[in-house]
Design a protein around this nucleic acid. Structure first.
Length: 481
RNA sequence: GCCGAGGUGGCAGAAUGGUUAAUGCGACGGACUGCAGAUCCGUUUCCUGGGGGUUCGAUUCCCUCCCUCGGCUCCA
C-alpha cells in the first residue's frame, strides 16, 4: 500500500492516511440531490471521490465506497406535492438520471447506493439510543437532539454554538428547547409517508439517515467522509454529534474531505438564486470526459468558477490538446506491425516510467490533480515529437510512451480509448482503404479526389492528419460518446 | 458579528524561504503541408491585494488592513 497524505477538515491539517483496518478503507459521500435534476456543481465531488477511490485501488487498498440516497426529506415532500407525485417515486426518478450522468462521467467506483428508507430499523435504534442516553428529548411527538449535551458540537466547522446568533437564520420552533437543536424524528404530518415508532408515527430527520446507514454498513467508526463544503455545517456536525453520542466511540470519521463549491460568475449555484446550470445539458454538449477534465483541472478543495459559454469551451480545447497524443498513440499502436520498428531510446523509456511515479506522487500529496494534468501536457509534447520521427516505432516502444496515459486512464478516468464494438476491424479496414486511395490520388496530383475522400471521412467524424509522409486518423473532436 | 475558503499574467489556474514563478486557453511569428488539420519551435521580457515585521533573501513564515466567495439549520 502506497502511503499518501490527505487533508482533514476537522483537524485542519494534511496528514498521512492510515486506514482503521488495512487494507480496507470505508468511504461515504453525501452527494445526491434526488429532489431535482442535478446541476453542474453537484457532480464535482462525485468525480473527486471517484479519483480518490481509483487511486486507493491502484495503491493496494481495498475501498468500500458508499454514496447515500436521501430518498425522503422535506424538499422531496414539497416537490412531490407540487408535481402530484409520491416523494419516493420522485427520488427514484432523479436517482436514475444521476446514475446515467455518473456513467457518462466515467464514475465507476461507487460500490453501493444505500437508500435512506431501507434503514428504518437502524434509524429507530439510533434515535432510541440517543433518547436513552439523554442526548435527545421527545417533544410534541418529535425527537430532538440536544446540542448542549454534546460538548464537541462545532469542532468540525469551527462554529461554536454561542456564536450562532447574529445573522443566523434560526427558525423559531416552540417544540425545541434550544434553537440550535435539530430534529431526529419528525412527528407525522397528514399526507406524508410515515412509519411507526416508540414516539408515535413520523419520519426520520435528515441527519440521522446518514449515521444510521454508516453504522450498519461501515461500523461505528470509518475512514473517509466527503461532501460539498456547504455540508460541513450543520449536516456533518450533526452526524458527528449523533454517532459519537450514540456509540460512545470517537472519532466517527478519520478524514473529513470537503470539496470546494462550484460558483457561477462568483456566486454559488443554487436553486434559490435561480442560477442553475444543468449537468445533463452540459454532458450532452461536451461529453463526460470534458466535464470530468474541467473538475480535475483544479484542486478539489478550491472553488471553481463557472462562466457560461467559456469555461467548458476552454476545457474542451485544452482536453483536445491533452488527449490528442494519447489518441495518436492508440492509432499508431493499432497500425503498428507485430514485430520490427524502432525501439525507444533508453533515456526516454526511463522518463516514461519516472513520469508515472511522479504522477502517483502528486496524487499522494492530497490529490494534486491539477499538476498531474500539467505533467501530462508536457508528456504530450514528448509523445508528439517521438511520433514525428521518420522510422515507425515498435509496438513495445509505443506502449512505453503510453504509460503515463495508461495511468491517466486508470486514475483520472480520462483518455478513454475509442469503443471497440463489433465490426471495428471492418471499419478500420475501410478507413485504411480510403486512406490508401487518397494517397494514390495525391501521388498523381488529383487533389480534387483526395479532398473528396478526406471530406467524406470528415462527414463520418474522422479527421485525417498527414505527418512525416504518413497519414493517420482520429475522431474529429472529443465529445459525448 | 462569528466561522471557513480565497486574492498570482489578457483569461483559467499551480507551486515554492533563493538562478528565467508551472501548465493550459488566447494572441503573434516561424517550421511542416498540394491545401488544411494536427504537431513542433519561438515570442507573449515589467503577473503573487495594501502596509508592516522576521530573514542575507518573502510570493511563501508572522501581524494587520482591504476585497471576494461560502456557511451560520434548504444546500454537492
Amino acid at each position: 500500500m502506497r502511503r499518501f497524505r490527505l487533508y482533514d477538515t476537522r483537524t485542519r491539517q494534511t496528514r498521512p492516511f492510515v486506514p482503521l483496518t488495512p487494507p480496507r478503507v470505508g468511504l461515504f459521500f453525501c452527494g445526491l440531490t434526488p429532489y431535482a435534476d442535478a446541476h453542474i456543481g453537484h457532480a464535482k465531488g462525485a468525480v473527486t471521490f471517484d479519483v480518490l477511490v481509483r487511486a486507493l485501488r491502484r495503491w493496494g487498498y481495498r475501498p468500500f465506497y458508499l454514496q447515500n440516497v436521501t430518498n425522503l426529506d422535506d424538499r422531496l415532500i414539497a416537490r412531490g406535492a407540487e408535481e402530484g407525485v409520491d416523494p419516493m417515486t420522485l427520488a427514484d426518478r432523479h436517482f436514475r438520471r444521476w446514475l446515467e450522468a455518473m456513467e457518462e462521467l466515467r464514475v465507476t467506483t461507487v460500490n453501493y447506493y444505500p437508500h435512506a428508507t431501507d434503514y428504518l430499523p437502524e434509524i429507530l435504534a439510533q434515535v432510541g439510543a440517543l433518547v436513552d442516553k439523554g442526548f435527545a428529548y421527545v417533544s410534541d411527538g418529535s425527537v430532538y437532539y440536544s446540542v448542549a449535551k454534546f460538548p464537541h458540537y462545532g469542532e468540525l466547522s469551527g462554529q461554536r454554538s454561542e456564536a450562532l446568533r447574529p445573522g443566523a437564520r434560526l427558525e423559531v420552533d416552540p417544540s425545541k428547547r434550544s434553537p440550535e437543536d435539530f430534529v431526529l424524528w419528525k412527528a407525522a404530518t397528514p399526507g406524508e409517508p410515515t412509519w411507526e415508532s416508540p414516539w408515535g408515527p413520523g419520519r426520520p430527520g435528515w441527519h440521522i439517515e446518514d449515521t444510521a446507514i454508516t453504522a450498519r454498513l461501515l461500523g461505528n467508526r470509518y475512514d473517509i467522509h466527503g461532501g460539498g463544503l456547504d455540508l460541513a455545517f450543520p449536516h456533518h456536525e450533526a452526524e458527528i454529534a449523533q454517532a459519537e453520542a450514540a456509540t460512545g466511540e470517537a472519532p466517527l470519521v478519520n478524514f473529513w474531505m470537503h470539496v470546494g463549491l462550484l460558483t457561477l460568475k462568483g456566486e454559488k449555484m443554487s436553486k434559490s438564486l435561480g442560477n442553475v446550470v444543468s449537468l445533463d445539458e452540459n454532458l450532452e454538449t461536451f461529453g463526460g470526459e470534458v466535464v470530468r477534465f474541467y473538475y480535475l483541472n483544479v484542486h478539489y478543495r478550491g472553488p471553481l468558477d463557472y462562466v457560461p459559454g467559456k469555461s467548458l469551451e476552454e476545457a474542451r480545447e485544452a482536453y483536445e490538446t491533452l488527449s490528442a497524443p494519447s489518441a495518436a498513440l492508440d492509432a499508431a499502436l493499432g497500425a503498428a506491425p507485430p514485430d520490427g520498428g524502432e525501439e525507444l531510446p533508453e533515456a526516454l523509456a526511463l522518463e516514461a516510467a519516472a513520469k508515472v511515479e511522479r504522477l502517483d506522487e502528486l496524487l499522494a500529496d492530497d490529490f494534486r490533480t491539477r499538476e498531474a494534468i500539467a505533467e501530462l501536457f508536457t508528456w504530450g509534447r514528448t509523445v508528439s515529437s517521438s511520433l514525428e520521427r521518420a522510422e515507425p516505432l515498435s509496438a513495445a516502444a509505443l506502449a512505453q510512451l503510453a504509460l503515463p496515459y495508461d495511468w491517466g486512464r486508470e486514475v483520472l478516468g480520462l483518455f478513454e480509448p475509442l469503443r471497440e464494438g463489433p465490426g471495428a476491424d471492418a471499419l478500420r479496414g475501410a478507413v485504411a482503404a480510403a486512406i490508401s486511395a487518397r494517397a494514390r490520388a495525391r501521388a498523381r496530383g488529383d487533389y480534387g479526389e483526395a479532398d473528396r475522400i478526406r471530406s467524406e471521412l470528415a462527414a463520418a467524424g474522422l479527421v485525417l492528419e498527414d505527418r512525416a509522409g504518413r497519414t493517420s486518423w482520429r475522431a474529429a473532436r472529443v465529445g459525448p460518446r
